[in-house]
Every structure is written in structure tokens, then in C-alpha cells.
Amino acid sequence: MSNETEATTVTSADLSEAIKTATDEVFSTMLSLKLKPGEVYVEKEEKVPASGVVSLIGLAGPWVGTGSVSCTAQFACRIAGQMLMTEYPAICEDVLDAVAEITNMIIGNVKTTLENRLGGMGLSTPTVIYGRNFQTRSARNQEWTVVPFEWDGDQMCVQVCIAPNPDNGKKEVRPGFPIPHMLNI
């Protein structure tokens, strides 16, 4: 494993492949479901305010970034229902917790894939937001690789942004650090 981040690059294609593999593994293993990935795209920030559930996890080490899973409230209820074998008609603690754990597993597995090239990284605990008319943007103006997935006509997006850590080696970074991500709610 190398710490020479200048010599290492991660392309959007690398990220989208890692996201697709991790999402497929998590959904097929924990929910017995096959999701269909849509067309991958790259964006700097969401163009329109969103509604629903967003779950965010920070990555830190020689590279830093954020991973997120976003979906409608209905999609989130279906995830929790399938995972916990219970019907959820509306968002509740169980639903938000299930989405957080799905995010933890997907982004955790993306992290494991990336660590082979980028070196060890810490993973923060997930932060879940449920609401209407909110917008997310990266404080560092990074590009997000976004992979949409479909399940019976409903959509979920898994996205990751990651870049070399300019502070690498200056201080110890641990899981639980503040997520480098801004929210306008």
C-alpha cells in the first residue's frame, strides 16, 4: 500500500464500479434484492432542492471524502421493510436506522475497495437527514460520482466524492470527525 497520494488517482469510473459492486452485494445479501443501476453521472452540486432521506458518511485518511445514499421516503420505508421483515407505512426511527446501516455497509465496502490503492481510511458513523426542500453541497467544491438505482420504478442514488487529503500526515484523523459537507435545510 502506498501513501504517495500524488501518484495515485481515482477516476469516476473507478468510483462508479466500486459503488455498483458494493450496492449489489449489500442489497442481494441483506435484502435479497437485485437493483438495476442507471446511467452514472458526475455533478458538483444538486441542481434542485431535494426531498426525502439522505444518509451521509465521511471518509478520512490519506484521502478524504463523503459517501451518501439518498432516496424518497417511500423507498426508505421499502428498504427497512425488506431488511427487517416488517411493513413501514411512514418514516420512523427504524426506517432511518435501516437506511443509515445500508449506507454504512455500501460506503464501507466502497472504502475497502479504495483502500487497496489509497491506503487505510477511517469511516465516520452515518448521519441521516429526513425532510423536504433541502440541498447538499461539498465544502471543497469536489465532484460527486452519482450512481442511480431503480427498484420497481422508484429511485435511490449512491454517490461518493473523494480527493487527496491536503492535511495528510499533519494530524491524526479518526472516525467520528465532522463530515466535510454542507446542508441547506
Binding site: M30, M83, L84, D97, A100, E101
Partner: peptide, 9 residues
């Protein structure tokens, strides 16, 4: 586990 969902599973 900090996830109640995982504890249930």
C-alpha cells in the same frame, strides 16, 4: 452495534 436494525437482524 449502534444500528438497531443490525441488532434486530
Amino acid at each position: 452495534d449502534d444500528s438497531a436494525a443490525i441488532r434486530k437482524i
